[in-house]
Structure formats: structure tokens, C-alpha cells
Design a binder for these strands. Structure first.
Lengths: 207, 207
DNA sequence: ACATGTGAAAGAGTTCACAGCC
DNA sequence: GGCTGTGAACTCTTTCACATGT
């Protein structure tokens, strides 16, 4: 949001967010009409309305398994200082890591944990562990009652249907870049072929 | 791919990759029919064909700017031992980091660099720098002749049209998880509202 | 004049369902 | 019988274009 402005157009928002003005208008209108024709959207009203829709105000307890460089990057990141989630526990299996303190929390063994350890049960689990451990950790998280997972491992996780999973897969992103470098800008989305001996990319070319 | 099998069905592939069998068949057929009706896809033929389509064989030179925990996670990751890309340079601006050696490479200043420093010019640039530096680094990378960027900063980058950009945005993923925890499983995609005072999520609810 | 909100059209991706082949 | 390949249907998303409101 530009400083000193109290109104912003769909065109501006689109340019800032990297999408078209039409998409901005369609999406914003879906959460209720609050733009003013002729001038645009009132910025404070807009922030207020979207913050309400997204954050709602609740801050979810979150746990992380696999305390390597990636986890440390997340822990130190300004992202997690916000209202969306707060880190309440760190897990690893490496004896040289368990017991150490990272970001003010002592790293523990996931196997030692159960739901009663927490005042408020964790809702979000982050997997920054090696791919080989991902399914086991996911199982442990689900047993703890976690309802949302984010994994950085290039592995499809089997979880109960009520658990949401988000995959953040750097290797797929890299493959997509490489594909675009070789062939032109064709349609190509990440997802398939994780389990083959080859690279994990789904090719969506149409004849 | 299952060990000891020389054929695999679209159903199996779908389960392994987390998509439907129909999608697997549709996608694979788009790169040429090479399944056998009644038995499935020949695994070695399949690997060979997909590897050819994706990797092509070329290994792209890649550079990274912003050598913090995230960059170290990527550098140490097994992902980058593969044929897709190899790291050829590391950059930072912090005097306490410039000059150190990480993963066998000495960290340098991006400003000191020009295309003539390389036998083969870098093709892929990774941005693990703070969001405030992202656009400047992207500009520097584009000047070096880089044609594909992957950024971990929650910032829309302005680059020439021939440059491909992939955004890996953990804060958006986290917002999406939080949204699913509060409301049910509704449609919601990442992308919009980066620039507002609020969280970066695009809401795709339909009336 | 300017910018939203929204029907209608277009586009992209997924799923159905079945003919055809092994 | 089993499984692929694909037309057709369907769903989801984006874009167009313009009536509507300030």
C-alpha cells in the first residue's frame, strides 16, 4: 500500500500483486462489495476486511520437525513473528541436536511427546526433515491432533482426510525453471512423477 | 517406482503422486503414447522418456544471493547434487559473510561481478535475500544475463518479459493453512494482496 | 470522467466413461 | 479381465466488456 493514500484502484493492486485488474475486482467482490466506483477501494477498510477474513485474530500453535538450516531459516524469519502462527515446539531425532536450544525453544524427541504436553494442542505442523522420515513424522503429527501440515520434502504424504497438506517443493520449482529454459514458456505444473526414478514434474502440454 | 517391477499402471502412479489415474493418463499421453493396454507403462521406457523431456541432459549454472540459513539449506540439500543445476557462485552484502566459504564456494559481492567472470554465464538465479533487497538483486541478476529466477521473498519482481520467475512464498502457504483451519476446505489460492498492510492471500470464494 | 461489480465468453484443468488393444 | 488413450462433459479460473454508481 502506498503511503499517504487512502484509496487504491484495482489496477494499482493488480500491478503490485502481479495479476490483472479484472482478477483483483472479481476476487475482492467475492468477499463483499466495498469499493467505491469512481475512486477505488478504501485502504483502511480493505486491510481491515481482509485481515478479518484471513487471520480472524486467532494465532495457531505450530510445531516443527527436523531442525536443520531450513528450520532455522523459518524460525528466524520475520514471517513467524506475525499473528498467524507461533512456534511452540521443535523436534528432531539427532542426539546432537535434541536438547539444544534454538530460538528460545529446546529441541525434543517427537516420540516422547503426547497431546497432554500442551496447554493448547498444536494445530499446524511443519516438516523440514529428510524425505525418508517425512511419513513417520506426519503420522506422529496427526496422532498429536495436528490438522494442517506444510512439508518441504518431495514426498506425497498419506494423512486422514480432515488434515490439510501444503507441499513446498523446491526441486519441482527448479525443474520447472529448467524446463522453461530448454523449451519456451509452455504450460507446465508441478505434481506428478514423484515416485519414478526421474524428476518430479508434471507436464501439462496439450496436443 | 517400485523395485522389481518393470511395468506400472496409471492407478499406481496416481496414488504415488497424489493425483487421479485419469490425470496421469492424460498427462502422459500428451508426451506421446507409450503405455501398453492391459498391463501399464514400461518403467524404464517411462523414466527414459520423461528424463529426456525434462533434463534434456543440460546442467544449468546457478547462482544464489543472500547466504543465510535458507541458502545453506539449499546448498547442502541433496536436490542440488542432481543434473538439473549446479551452483557456481554465492553472493551477499554483509561484510562478515563476504569472503567466507560455504559449500566449497567463496561468497562474493554481486556488485563486483560481471558476465565476463564466468566461462559459462549463469542461467538460474536464486534469491534468498531479505525482501527489501530482492528487486535490486533481481536487477543485478538480469544484467548478468540470467533467464530464470526463483525467489523466496514475498515480493513481486519486475523483470524483462523473457525472464521466468517462480515464487516460493512460505508466508502465503502458512496463510492458506490458517485459512483452512478457520473456515473449512474452501477454494483459496496464493497470490494477491502482497502490497497491502495485511497478509498476502488471494481469496477465490464464489458466491 | 473514472473505477467498481458482474453477466457472459473464453480458457485451463480435471474427471467421466468407454472404445480399443493387450 | 485389465489398462491405456481420448472425446465429451464438467468444474474452476481468468478475461472481456459494459452497465452502474460517484
Amino acid at each position: 500500500m502506498r503511503r499517504g493514500r487512502d484509496t487504491v484502484s484495482s489496477d494499482d493492486l493488480g500491478r503490485l500483486a502481479g495479476v490483472s485488474a479484472a482478477t483483483v475486482r472479481r476476487d475482492l467482490s467475492s468477499i463483499g462489495p466495498f469499493g467505491t466506483r469512481g475512486s477505488g477501494y478504501d485502504t483502511s477498510h480493505l486491510s481491515h476486511r481482509t485481515a478479518e477474513l484471513l487471520g480472524g485474530g486467532s494465532t495457531f500453535p505450530m510445531v516443527i520437525a527436523g531442525i536443520g538450516n531450513l528450520a532455522k531459516a523459518l524460525i528466524n524469519s520475520p514471517l513467524f513473528g506475525d499473528r498467524t502462527a507461533r512456534i511452540v515446539a521443535l523436534y528432531d531425532v539427532d542426539p546432537s541436536i535434541v536438547g539444544t536450544t534454538v530460538g528460545g525453544l529446546t529441541v525434543r524427541l517427537l516420540a516422547d511427546e503426547d497431546a497432554s504436553s500442551f496447554a493448547e494442542p498444536p494445530a499446524i505442523g511443519i516438516l523440514t526433515c529428510p524425505a525418508s522420515a517425512a511419513q513417520d513424522v506426519a503420522d506422529g503429527f496427526c496422532d498429536m491432533g495436528i490438522r494442517a501440515l506444510m512439508t518441504f520434502s518431495p514426498r506425497v504424504l498419506e494423512v486422514p482426510p480432515e488434515v490439510t497438506v501444503r507441499y513446498v517443493d523446491v526441486s519441482i520449482e527448479l525443474q520447472i525453471l529448467a524446463y522453461h529454459l530448454e523449451h519456451g514458456r509452455g504450460p507446465l505444473n508441478g505434481g506428478l512423477l514423484h515416485s519414478l526414478g526421474v524428476s518430479p514434474v508434471r507436464v501439462g502440454l496439450r496436443p
